[in-house]
């Protein structure tokens, strides 16, 4: 088993996929860093002061003005009201919600990347793990060895888990290192507020508490990792079921993108919450943004994802061990 995993790992590293992923992340992080830098500069110029409180106060005023427009969908109004209350809470407690520094940037980057960007990166690795053996014809060589089939698939799956972990860590590390060049490497100890309890547009602050940013980052990391594993497992399943890699990738891509679109419009279609792609934005639960469908919680999302994960694994192994190879 160990040798099989080593073998798979060697194949993966030889493909240099991880290097490509690293380059993609690097370029994107640099772009976002520059965009953020520009935005901060412009805001400071507009306000004439670098004091974040003035900037936050202005954001609150802007939100209030948007709320005063009566041509707005109820669900957007609700979300705006929630974010308004949180902004006011931060301001009232004199806590900067976006303390400048690489740690904050990394946190924001992870929170925004969790539902689309990270899954896409994972797909690059996961979607041809099995199907490439098919298209290159090497599957026969692999299966003629005196090893049980499930062990072969297992070694591939373990390799997937390892590379998923590596990609998540690499993304976090790169965004910290690169953004730090501009924003500085500080901000680990900055307080972040967590524990907002949302009931519709009401924000219950009775359980709100402060968490040091490094703790919050680790929480984000754990959630991002779970999403990455689940998405990886699903594309792994597709690569077992669908012989052609592009087709498998296409299916997964369609699912992910439809998830991003559904997130903005499903609030009235309640059973949509059982789709895995609607549950990917796990970090919103700890930062306290309203979920796409009322009633979704961290636990319900995690369980939904785990069910999808389990089913995908069962299907993959069942299909692979029974499959005719010719």
């Amino acid at each position: 088993m160990n040798n099989l995993i080593q073998n798979e790992m060697m194949k993966l590293l030889a493909k240099k996929r991880l290097v490509i992923i690293g380059i993609i992340v690097g370029i994107l992080v640099m772009m976002f860093t520059y965009a953020q830098y520009k935005q901060v500069k412009e805001q400071q110029e507009k306000l004439g002061t670098s004091d974040w409180r003035a900037a936050l106060q202005q954001q609150i005023i802007d939100t209030q003005n948007r709320l005063s427009s009566n041509r707005m969908l109820d669900e957007w109004r609700e979300q705006l009201e929630v974010s308004l209350k949180q902004q006011q809470y931060y301001l009232d407690h004199d806590i900067n919600p976006s303390e400048p520094g690489a740690a904050t940037f990394t946190r924001m980057f992870l929170e925004n990347a969790i539902d689309l960007f990270i899954p896409l990166l994972i797909m690059i690795v996961a979607s041809d793990l099995v199907s490439s053996e098919n298209s290159q014809g090497t599957i026969k060589l692999l299966l003629t060895r005196p090893v049980e089939r499930w062990k072969i698939l297992m070694s591939k799956y373990v390799t997937l888990l390892l590379s998923v972990s590596l990609i998540v860590a690499m993304t976090a590390l790169l965004s910290y290192l690169l953004s730090g060049l501009v924003f500085g490497y500080q901000g680990w100890g900055a307080p972040v507020i967590t524990g907002f309890d949302l009931k519709g547009a009401n924000v219950d602050v009775s359980q709100v508490r402060l968490v040091a940013q490094w703790k919050f980052l680790l929480m984000d990391l754990g959630l991002v990792w779970l999403v990455a594993v689940v998405v990886g497992t699903l594309s792994f399943m597709l690569s077992v079921l669908v012989r052609s890699t592009p087709a498998g990738m296409g299916i997964m891509l369609a699912a992910l993108i439809s998830g991003a679109i559904l997130n903005n419009m499903v609030s009235s279609w309640e059973s949509a919450k059982y789709f895995f792609m609607v549950n990917l934005k796990l970090t919103t639960y700890i930062s306290g943004t309203a979920p796409p469908i009322e009633g979704m919680t961290l636990l319900s999302s995690v369980i939904t994802l785990l069910v999808w994960w389990g089913l995908a694994l069962i299907v993959s192994f069942a299909a692979f061990t029974k499959k005719d190879v010719y």
Binding site: I5, Q6, M9, L13, L161, L162, S163, V164, S165, L166, V168, A169, L218, M219, L221, G222, L223, W225, L226, I286, L298, L299, V302
Partner: peptide, 20 residues
């Protein structure tokens, strides 16, 4: 590479449990 990523994976799993 295998060992490092295995550690990262376990660490992330730990973070996840702790978060929940």
């Amino acid at each position: 590479a295998t060992i490092v990523s295995a550690f990262i994976g376990l660490f992330c799993l730990f973070c996840l449990g702790w978060t929940i």
